[in-house]
Design a protein around this nucleic acid. Structure first.
Length: 494
DNA sequence: TTTTGAGTTGTTCGA
DNA sequence: GTCGAACAACTCAAA
């Protein structure tokens, strides 16, 4: 750029790109549109823990957000538009900031939760009154939730027809490249707008620092996300349909936290998988299976958009009368991985250590909490919200309701996972359990999923005494199952 | 409007 | 050990 044209750019009024759930540079339509104005770009992140109704982030999400923002800040600085961090109610901060720096427009990627949409609508109105442009984009979903409807124009409530309708729309638009150049907006931000630094947001745990397991498991940020996708396509997609159910094999994509924070765009994921299948680098069936998993994420957002209180209210109102049981001792045993059922405990400890749990094990652990312990699904939803790095308002709520049977297209009441059978089926050698429940690691595969049935000689040679080295079962499986069936009887036909 | 086929992920029981 | 049926009836989506 010549000196003259640089001065010309400096004289131009800036635009703002407000980054929220699309913490990346590539395939970011909001960022791209801001760049294409040719005006200087001010990139901001607003840490909003003040707007009413916006659910506070869980601990694991806060850890991820810190590192994701750090990575985004580095990438943006390199691209020429350093990230500014602000703290406070977005509804006040964004319009005031735009007005004070003389911005002509604000760009952002859409969000789909009820309170988030309320905030965004209010801001759009405020900006409109100030004569400032407000431009929002879809950077999170394959299709907008309102674009996929039944023939009669209603939202879908069953996955399969939803997926069919989504598929009939064809491939999403190809992903956009990173903006070629961004011009820095040289503005000074008044402290009254809540200027902050990443560290001052206090997102990281300190006393105690429990994030060691997260650090060794994850690389937040756009590069880490793209590496995961590459690894998926090169190494995990072949055989994905079968292996994804095996917690001992690491057969899942592990993209969920990256997708949640928008470190990689859904359009890029879709197109790279489709292309790999077209080039016969991965089997068609495996690629289709993976795409259908993306469609579940899509379906969850569809449900959340049309049911903003999905995380707190039974989708099926008859569940309002369900006789949930409160038992803090048992819930605590579940949370800490001390139920006495190895596959459940392994999953809950994996979650505690890494901020993530294998999908199959999530179902087993959730089914156990809901059906064997008769705990209200919202208790489990809240625990996952706090401990998962991929905690997502749509996926978390829809999935818990699915297991409970209270959701859309939910599991039938009689589907009660037996943790012993599930363990034997999906962790046949017991390797997953051995990794996370080391105190029973010496048990042979034949007994590792049901230590209480092991003969005394086997327990002795594994140096294992139940009740001392590993908890006794907190509930009997047959009684738990019978209790669940009886409880579900009470709301039948309600 | 009415009808019809279908609906992610399981377990148990009895032949 | 294997296999099919039962476990409820209901709601959804589309013809």
């Amino acid at each position: 750029m010549t000196q003259a044209s640089k001065r010309a750019t400096d004289r131009q009024p800036p635009v703002i790109v407000w980054l929220r759930d699309a913490l990346r540079l590539a395939d970011n339509r909001a960022l791209n549109a801001a760049a294409e104005t040719g005006q200087p770009v001010l990139a901001i992140y607003v840490h909003d823990d003040a707007s009413p109704g916006v659910r506070p982030l869980g601990g694991a999400s806060r850890w991820w957000l810190h590192h994701s923002l750090a990575a985004l800040g580095r990438d943006l600085a390199e691209a020429g538009a350093p990230l500014k961090i602000l703290r406070g109610p977005a509804g006040r901060i964004v319009p005031e900031l735009a007005q004070q720096i003389g911005a002509t427009a604000v760009f952002w990627s859409r969000r789909y939760g009820g309170s988030e949409r309320a905030v965004d609508t209010a801001i759009k109105n405020s900006l409109g009154e100030l004569g400032i442009g407000a431009h929002s984009f879809n950077d999170f979903l394959l299709a907008e939730p309102w674009e996929v409807t039944t023939r009669s124009g209603d939202p879908f409530k069953v996955f399969t027809p939803f997926w069919r309708a989504l598929r009939e729309r064809g491939d999403p638009a190809p992903p956009l490249p990173k903006p070629r150049k961004l011009t820095t907006a040289h503005v000074s931000l008044p402290v009254s707008l809540g200027t902050a630094t990443l560290d001052s947001l206090d997102l990281l745990p300190t006393r105690p620092d429990w994030a060691g397991g997260l650090r060794e498991t994850w690389t937040p940020g756009e590069q880490g996300a793209r590496d995961r996708l590459t690894h998926l396509i090169r190494s995990r997609l072949d055989g994905y349909a079968a292996n994804r159910d095996r917690p001992d094999l690491a057969g899942t994509s592990c993209l969920s936290p990256h997708l949640h924070f928008g470190e990689i765009g859904i359009r890029e994921v879709w197109h790279r998988v489709v292309r790999a299948a077209a080039d016969r680098k991965v089997p068609h069936e495996d690629a289709q299976k993976f795409l259908s998993e993306l469609a579940w994420r899509e379906f969850s957002n569809h449900l959340l958009f049309h049911n903003p209180d999905l995380a707190t209210r039974n989708f099926q109102p008859r569940f309002d009368a369900f006789p949930w049981v409160s038992n803090r001792r048992r819930v605590r045993a579940w949370q800490r991985g001390k139920t006495g059922y190895p596959i459940v405990d392994a999953g809950m400890r994996e979650l505690w250590h890494t901020g993530w749990m294998h999908n199959r094990v999530r179902m087993i652990a959730a089914s156990f909490l809901i059906k064997h312990l008769l705990t209200d699904w919202r208790t489990g939803e809240a625990w996952f919200w706090d401990t998962l790095v991929d905690a997502d308002a749509a996926n978390n709520a829809a999935s818990w309701q699915w297991v409970a049977g209270s959701g859309a297209d939910a599991a039938p009441y009689f589907r009660i996972f037996n943790p012993v059978l599930q363990g034997r089926k999906f962790d046949p050698e017991g390797d997953y359990v051995r990794r996370w429940v080391p105190e029973i690691a010496k048990l042979p595969a034949a007994h590792i999923h049901a230590p209480w049935d092991a003969p005394p000689s086997v327990l002795a040679s594994a140096k294992l005494e139940l009740g001392r080295d590993y908890p006794e079962r907190i509930v009997d499986l047959d009684e738990g199952r019978a209790g669940a069936l009886a409880a579900f009887q009470t709301i039948k036909g309600a």
